[in-house]
Simulated assay, not measured.
Amino acid sequence: MTVTIKDIAKVAGVSYSTVSKALNNSPLVKEATKRKILKVAEEMGYEPNLAAKQLVRKRTDVIGLMWPTIERIVLATLVTNISKAFENTSYSMILSVDSQETAMETFKKFQVDGMIIFGESNEVSITQDPIPFVVYGVSGKNETSYPIIDANHEASMQKAVKHLYELGHRNITYIGQFDTKDALQLEKVEGYEKAMKQFGLEKYKQIIDSKGLNWFDGYTAVEKVLQNEGQQPTAIIGGSYDISGGIMRALTEKGISIPNDISLVSYDNIPQMATTEVPMTCIGVPVDVLAEEIVHAIIERIESEERVELVKKLSPTLTARESSGPPRIQ
């Protein structure tokens, strides 16, 4: 038999409204009375009717996360950190790695209050849906009608090239995916090109298409680098944690010392960078900071009555470790 608030009120000897206030932690109820009511409620096995509560508030306190995959370590790590960031709020999170259409249907069934979307392209097709959403992606040059959290990949590449330049490197190669519609990857390439021009290194510019974002893509790309006899790099920038892991393994297998022969800097800033074969110098917004910003943005979108900031560009951080050092003196 379901225990109601009226049942608790009868046993506790207080009014129905007092029980309601106590269960909602109202400061209008004395602490002694509140403790008594909560004890009675627990002993009677009372369970709140969340559906009714949500109906009154017209909110579910659930946010949907629309994600492309959790197979890549970086994306799985970011999802984990987003989930942790929600633990400090009143919201819960549900994750969908389905297509956008399927994910939307799922979120509508759960009546989510808002959505977080991974924006691999500059265009997000959700434009007129009543559910508030924010995008983790690239803001681009055009105006946007929805909030974007931009990790500022261009600034990351600028800092990576600057770090290597100041160590004395000139032959700096970039390995990453660029034959793609993924705006995040394209901005990394553009950022690398701009940085090489900024530091007067255009004649040394070399971009190797990894054809993907996984470990094996980075591993096989190293062969293309070494086949170019006219321009052997003294430093490589990897376009992702997984790509850079493959690069590191391939260089090591070929007897190329990191960083004595070739320095390596990787995009992405996750804790796993510190535990690679050679602790990896990395660039990017720290994953915990990125998660906090994304969570803050969607909650603000849901709860704020004022117009929220549509584009927020974050500041990347370079963490220098053992994989980068001065070039070998020829």
Rank of each mutant, 00 (worst) to 15 (best):
G200A: 09
A52P: 03
T173L: 06
P48H: 14
F133A: 09
T180W: 04
L23E: 02
P279E: 07
K34E: 12
S139F: 03
H169I: 14
Q232K: 15
V278E: 08
S323E: 02
P233L: 03
S240W: 06
M196L: 07
L314A: 02
K34G: 02
A76W: 03
D288I: 13
Q330I: 10
A12R: 04
T276H: 03
E43I: 14
I148M: 10
L50Y: 11
I236H: 04
Q128V: 07
K205Q: 04
M157F: 11
Y146P: 00
L23W: 06
I70S: 01
L213H: 02
N269P: 03
L184W: 01
S83H: 12
W215V: 07
L65C: 08
A235I: 00
G191I: 08
Q227N: 15
A235C: 02
R249Y: 12
Y146M: 10
M280I: 14
I37Y: 02
A250S: 13
E123D: 10
A195T: 14
I302K: 05
E190F: 13
P68T: 06
L75T: 07
M1H: 15
F118E: 08
I207A: 07
V134F: 02
S139W: 04
L318E: 00
Q272L: 11
Q54H: 15
D113L: 09
Q232V: 15
K6V: 11
K188R: 14
I126E: 05
G239S: 00
L290C: 03
Q128P: 04
I207C: 09
N228R: 12
D288E: 15
V265R: 10
P286G: 04
S156I: 03
I149Y: 01
V278M: 11
Y241D: 02
V79R: 05
K205A: 07
Y165E: 00
F178V: 12
A221D: 08
V295D: 09
V124G: 02
S15F: 13
I329C: 14
L28S: 12
E154G: 09
G284C: 14
E101F: 14
D261L: 05
E202M: 10
P147Y: 05
R35S: 10
E202G: 14
G119P: 00
S304A: 15
L78F: 01
T2G: 13
Y241F: 09
S125Q: 15
A103T: 03
A151P: 06
S156A: 05
Q272K: 09
S83Q: 08
F118T: 04
A12K: 04
V225A: 08
F133Q: 04
K21Y: 05
L167D: 10
L186N: 12
P233H: 05
V225K: 00
S257W: 14
T127L: 00
I237C: 00
E154L: 10
E229I: 10
V19E: 04
R57S: 12
G239M: 00
K36G: 11
G200I: 05
H169L: 09
N122R: 06
V161K: 03
P279S: 03
Q330A: 11
R57C: 05
H163W: 04
L251I: 01
T127A: 02
I243M: 13
K203L: 10
D150K: 01
I126M: 13
E43Q: 11
D98W: 05
K58A: 08
R321F: 08
R59Y: 02
E229C: 13
I117S: 07
L213M: 14
R72Y: 15
